[in-house]
């Protein structure tokens, strides 16, 4: 579903964000990208969205090589990749319903589809009763759930989340993770960039650790830091599905 092949990204100021990263993520996987700030997590997410282009290497998303993809095709790529950010990125002047519906309107879905799918996804994220509220009338957790609903409403193949719980308290963060887990169970590949150790340890999913742009660990059902059970940095079961 996602493949990085020897990808390197160097910013104009000379910072090496990602260095020779190779990574395979299978359909339906739930993967945590972990690592300290500046380790290259966000750059990886941005490259998957074609917001950044690597200097070397190739990237495949949903079976398409995206580095040489013509610009006009990028919007169509993004329709297959839902995205959630730390700062929610909701449209402040639109209601919850309108924010979610916007993702369908933008890709030209008819009104009948919008009116069927948006209530369904609002039900999934538990915001049916707040469909007419504006974002500023919601809590942080609720706003993030709207963002997840918007990212998922057109049933993308992949859902990327960049620090989705960065602005939330631990309890709310767990709620968001449960939601992402439910989405993952529908067959959607989920990639979460985070440095929330508690959540990663709680979820026990595949963990890819980056440090200074390099993958230093790729562990199935891993934890945030070095695996306490083995005391080592295992590199096993890459690509394994959650049983």
């Amino acid at each position: 579903m996602i493949r990085f092949d020897n990808v390197t990204k160097v910013y104009k100021n000379g910072t090496v964000a990602v260095r020779s990263v190779s990574l395979d993520i299978q359909k339906g996987e739930f993967v945590f990208l972990v690592g300290p700030s500046g380790s290259g997590k966000t750059t990886c997410i941005r490259m998957l969205l074609r917001e950044e282009l690597p200097d070397r290497g190739r990237i495949w998303v949903a079976g398409r090589e995206i580095i040489h993809m013509p610009k006009w095709r990028v919007p169509y790529l993004r329709r297959n990749v839902g995205c959630v950010f730390q700062d929610f990125r909701l449209l402040p002047n639109k209601t919850v319903f309108q924010n979610v519906a916007f993702a369908l309107e933008v890709i030209g879905r008819p009104k009948s589809v919008v009116e069927t799918q948006v209530p369904q996804v609002l039900e999934l994220v538990g915001l049916s009763k707040k469909r007419d509220n504006l974002p500023h009338e919601l809590s942080g957790g609720e706003q993030q759930r709207v963002a997840v609903a918007r990212a998922f409403v057109n049933r993308p193949l992949i859902l990327l989340a960049d620090e989705p719980t960065g602005n939330l308290d631990p309890g709310t963060s767990q709620g968001i993770m449960r939601l992402l887990d439910r989405i993952n169970r529908t067959g959607t590949t989920v990639v979460v960039a985070t440095h929330d150790a508690a959540l990663v340890d709680w979820m026990r999913r595949r963990v890819v650790e980056l440090d200074q742009g390099t993958i230093v660990r790729d562990q199935a059902r891993g934890v945030y830091g070095i695996d306490a059970t083995t005391g080592s940095v295992p590199r096993t079961e890459v690509g394994a599905r959650r049983s």
Partner: peptide, 16 residues
């Protein structure tokens, strides 16, 4: 510009 970036994010074409 924020609105435009959200539009881009959810896959709006430039003409849209």
């Amino acid at each position: 510009r924020r609105e435009v970036s959200v539009m881009k994010l959810v896959g709006a074409t430039n003409w849209f």
